[in-house]
C-alpha cells in the first residue's frame, strides 16, 4: 500500500513537471501524427497488393497497430525513461541517492520518471483500436474484453521485466546505452502480428524480447483469436519473468560500487 502511494506521488510530480513544458505537448501530437500516418501508409501499401497477411485481414491488422501504438506509449511514458535514468545513474555512480531511501529500491527506480505527454500515444492507439473494432462490427465478447485488458497489463509487465534485466547488466558492463536503440528496433517488429515472421525470429520475439506478448496477444484478444492456453502461458511467463528480473536486479545490486555521489 505504501508502495502504491509512493508510485502515485512520483506520478503526480512527473505530471506537474511536464506541465511546465506545454510546447512539448504539440510536438508530441505532431510526432504521434507522423508515426500514425506512416504506419497507415505502410498498411495501405501492403493491402493494395493483397487482401490478407498471415491470416489477418486489414481491420484486424489495424487493431494490431492500435495495440502497438498504445503499448509504445506506455513504454515510452513509464518504463523506458525510468530505465534510462537507472542506466545513467549506475554509470555515473549516483544511484546511491535512491538506494539510501527507506523504500524498496526496485520499486523506487521503476517509478521515478513519468513522461506525461506520451499519453497522447496511448490515446491515439485506443482510437485506432476503436476504429478497427467498428470495422469489424464490434464483434466482441466479455472474454475478449477481459482477455484484452489482462493481456495489456501482462505485456507491459513483461516489457518492464525485460528492460530491468537489460538495465541491470549495466552493473557489470557499465556502458549499455546502445541497448535502447536495439530495443526500439526490435519493438518495431510488433507492428505486424508475429505469425508472419520465420520461426527463429518468432521465438526470439516471444521469449527473448517479449514483443509477441506485449502486442500480438492483446490484439489476438481483440480479434477473437485468444485461446485459453495462450492466456495461461502469458500469465505463467509474466510471473516467471518477474522473478527472474528481480533476482538479476538483486545480484547486480551487489556489485554496485558507486561512491562518487
Amino acid at each position: 500500500m505504501r508502495g502504491l502511494r509512493l508510485a502515485l506521488n512520483y506520478l503526480r510530480i512527473g505530471v506537474l513537471n511536464e506541465f511546465q513544458y506545454r510546447a512539448n505537448f504539440y510536438i508530441q501530437i505532431l510526432q504521434t501524427f507522423i508515426a500514425l500516418a506512416t504506419g497507415l501508409i505502410g498498411l495501405n501499401l501492403v493491402f493494395s497488393q493483397t487482401s490478407q497477411l498471415g491470416g489477418w485481414n486489414k481491420s484486424e491488422l489495424l487493431a494490431v497497430m492500435g495495440v502497438f501504438i498504445t503499448m509504445g506509449g506506455v513504454i515510452r511514458s513509464a518504463i523506458q525513461p525510468n530505465m534510462e535514468r537507472l542506466m545513467e545513474e549506475i554509470r555515473e555512480g549516483n544511484l546511491d541517492f535512491a538506494l539510501t531511501k527507506p523504500a524498496d529500491a526496485q520499486l523506487l527506480v521503476s517509478v521515478r520518471e513519468f513522461r506525461f505527454w506520451q499519453v497522447v500515444d496511448v490515446l491515439t492507439g485506443m482510437i485506432v483500436m476503436a476504429v478497427a473494432l467498428s470495422q469489424m462490427n464490434w464483434l466482441i465478447s466479455a472474454w475478449s474484453v477481459l482477455g484484452f485488458f489482462s493481456a495489456i497489463v501482462m505485456g507491459a509487465v513483461m516489457i518492464y521485466c525485460f528492460w530491468l534485466v537489460i538495465t541491470s547488466t549495466a552493473f557489470w558492463f557499465v556502458r549499455v546505452h546502445e541497448i535502447a536503440n536495439l530495443f526500439e528496433g526490435l519493438y518495431a517488429a510488433g507492428r505486424w502480428p508475429i505469425d508472419i515472421y520465420p520461426n527463429w525470429l518468432r521465438y526470439g520475439l516471444t521469449f527473448l524480447v517479449p514483443v509477441a506478448f506485449a502486442v500480438t496477444v492483446p490484439a489476438e484478444a481483440l480479434t477473437g483469436r485468444l485461446t485459453f492456453q495462450t492466456w495461461i502461458g502469458a500469465f505463467a511467463l509474466t510471473i516467471f519473468l518477474f522473478f527472474v528480473a528481480r533476482t538479476i536486479w538483486k545480484i547486480g545490486l551487489r556489485s554496485y560500487s558507486g561512491a562518487s555521489a
Binding site: T50, L53, F183, G185, L201
Partner: peptide, 20 residues
C-alpha cells in the same frame, strides 16, 4: 549494437513483403 538495431527495420519490411 547500433548496426543490429538498425537491421531490425529492413528485416521487418523484408519479411512482410516476402509474405505478400
Amino acid at each position: 549494437f547500433y548496426m543490429i538495431g538498425m537491421v531490425a527495420e529492413p528485416v521487418i519490411y523484408m519479411v512482410v513483403w516476402s509474405a505478400v
